[in-house]
Design a protein around this nucleic acid. Structure first.
Length: 505
RNA sequence: GCUCCGGUAGUAUAGUCCGGUCAAGUAUGCGGGCCUCUCGAGCCCGUGACCCGGGUUCAAAUCCCGGCCGGAGCACCA
């Protein structure tokens, strides 16, 4: 239809459809990226968007994606978090080609460590930690740095043999103690951790640090493009240097500042504090930026994907997205497929005098006929929303949608009295939603808002609204997202009694 | 404090590398209108920005210098 009237409109839409900018030095079929979560907390939307970027680019170039858990700190890593990321990525529609853990490769890391030692590029340092830090600050080298290869090899083997306790020895890279980039000042490559790892148990006590593990793994995985947030930017030099010493080639880095949303902290520390102070009770709280939280709120994975593609750029500047940007996309996606239902928040009773008994067939969607319809029986006693009650005046003429026109006779909190006028729609009168008293279903709706306003905790970040829904509300399935007309899009949450969570208007 | 890196409308971005076509595009928000038996969707119109100050140049959002503001890093975390 539109095609005939105004084909140029469609054309324009197509052209404007934003795509990801091309990746530098990317060849079709040869791009390899990775999803590198640290399983030390629940996955959040920032991880998701970053993961999407890595996945989407690999897909765009018919490439390959790794899911690789960066789990080299046994004390931080927990099994449930590995699963949180797998579930989150899957939910977002990210399909990874292969999966591994950095903790699978300890032997390999040891091998490369030995190579570095033999190259004279790594040494075992036995300085106390404070001294290491001080020397680093003062750009001074310690005496261990000049040990011979054999002595380092011996010390290293004794480290592996369990001869030293935590903090008694580390393997350090011979970098440049005078470098302006502090990460180059002889960084630690391995340290001793006497704590079981969820995957390898007590087998290993010498664990690589991030930069070493990543350098090796990115090479082993054949990663060509690293898309990551900018807090890692200073590590490029180090990781590249390690690989160069080992004769490995380097990937291309694309870095960008974190994805943050207004009034919504993403840090584990802050989120945990909200739980501990009782402001939130669970990690999947719909106000939280965790993947479980936004899923529960009713944000579609497709919306996050489209948002990532259209609203994102590779900027180093700090940015804080307004939730409305995501909501707008979500709403557009939901609109054609969400069933429309009647819900009356803060209800007030309405008695219509002279109302005939009416049975109406109400479509679930104004345009999408496939969604079907339901029958509602009405006999003159209804609930209407408190908001509509506040606004009405005696003498007003208004319409109960799909049902009848009426005139307000009396307005009291206990009930409103009205007079039946007619059934056919009248022009220019207010249309309101209604629920027959006979079939009213008690409904609770959680309405999430931003957690912080100007760095202060928002006292109204979660409201609970009570009201009545029509009978069909009972049949809404868990996870289904419906639109309560003139209220907003809401997802049915897992609770016996109808509990909904409002996503947005 | 030190070292890097940024600053385009309320928000997020395009443009900045290779100065002119940018009196700055898009999305969202906001205001108004049309349409609609939803204050949703759709359509139309409007609103609103190149951090500040110098310099280079015929010409600067784009290059240079200074200032201000913001972010990141400065771990035996990732």
């Amino acid at each position: 239809m539109l095609m005939e009237i105004a084909p140029e409109l469609l054309e324009r839409k197509k052209v404007e459809e934003k795509k990801l900018p091309p990746l530098p030095n990317a060849e079709k079929g040869k791009v390899v990226t990775r999803l590198p979560p640290e399983p030390s907390g629940y996955m959040h939307i920032g991880h998701g968007m970053s993961g999407l970027l890595n996945y989407l680019y690999a897909k765009m170039y018919d490439g390959f994606v790794w899911l690789r858990f960066e789990d080299t700190d046994p004390r931080k890593v927990k099994p449930e978090y590995y699963e949180s990321f797998r579930r989150g990525y899957r939910w977002l529609g990210i399909e990874w080609d292969d999966e591994k853990n950095n903790s699978d490769d300890l032997e390999l890391f040891y091998k490369y460590a030995e190579k570095l030692i033999k190259l004279g590029k790594a040494y075992v340092c036995r300085c106390p930690i404070e001294r290491i830090r001080r020397f680093r600050r003062e750009m001074k080298e310690c005496e261990h740095r000049s040990q011979g290869v054999d002595e380092n090899l011996d010390l290293w083997n004794r480290m592996l043999g369990g001869e030293f306790g935590e903090g008694e020895a580390i393997l350090r890279l011979k970098g440049d103690m005078r470098s302006k980039n502090t990460v180059m000042r002889d960084p630690a490559l391995f340290r001793i951790i006497d704590h079981p790892h969820p995957l390898t148990g007590k087998r290993y006590k010498v664990w690589p640090l991030y930069d070493f593990a990543v350098s090796i793994e990115d090479h082993v995985c054949g990663v060509t493009h690293v898309l990551r947030t900018s807090e890692f930017a200073l590590r490029d030099e180090l990781q590249n240097y390690i690989r160069e010493l080992l004769g490995m080639s380097n990937p291309i880095y694309v870095e960008y500042s974190r994805f943050e949303f207004k009034g919504t902290p993403v840090s584990k520390r802050k989120l945990r504090a909200l739980i501990e102070t009782g402001i939130a009770s669970r990690w999947d709280d719909p106000r939280f930026p965790t993947i479980d939280g936004i899923r529960r709120r009713g944000i579609l994975p497709e919306a996050i994907k489209e948002f990532t593609i259209t609203q994102t750029g590779f900027s180093y500047a700090k940015r804080e997205y307004d939730w409305s940007l995501l909501f707008a996309i979500n709403r557009r996606l939901l609109d054609p497929k969400a069933r429309r239902l009647f819900f009356t928040p803060n209800p007030v009773k309405l008695l219509v005098e002279g109302s005939p008994k009416i049975s109406v067939d109400v479509p679930y969607h104004p345009d999408n006929r496939e969604l079907g319809s339901r029958k509602i029986e009405a006999d003159g006693e209804f609930y209407i929303s408190g908001g509509d009650f506040e606004e009405m005046k005696v003498g007003d003429v208004l319409r109960l949608k799909y049902l009848m026109n009426l005139k307000i006779l009396e307005k009291k909190r206990e009930h409103v009295r009205a007079e039946f006028l007619s059934r056919e729609p009248m022009k220019n009168i207010k249309i309101i939603q209604w629920v027959p008293v006979d079939e009213a279903v008690r409904v609770r709706v959680m309405v999430p808002d931003i957690l912080y306003i100007n760095d202060e905790v928002n006292p109204n970040s979660l409201k609970i609204i009570n009201g009545f829904g029509e009978r069909a509300v009972e049949d809404v399935k868990v996870d289904e997202i419906v639109q309560f007309e003139r209220f907003g899009f809401c997802r049915r949450d897992l609770e016996p009694e109808p509990l909904f969570i409002k996503a947005h208007d």
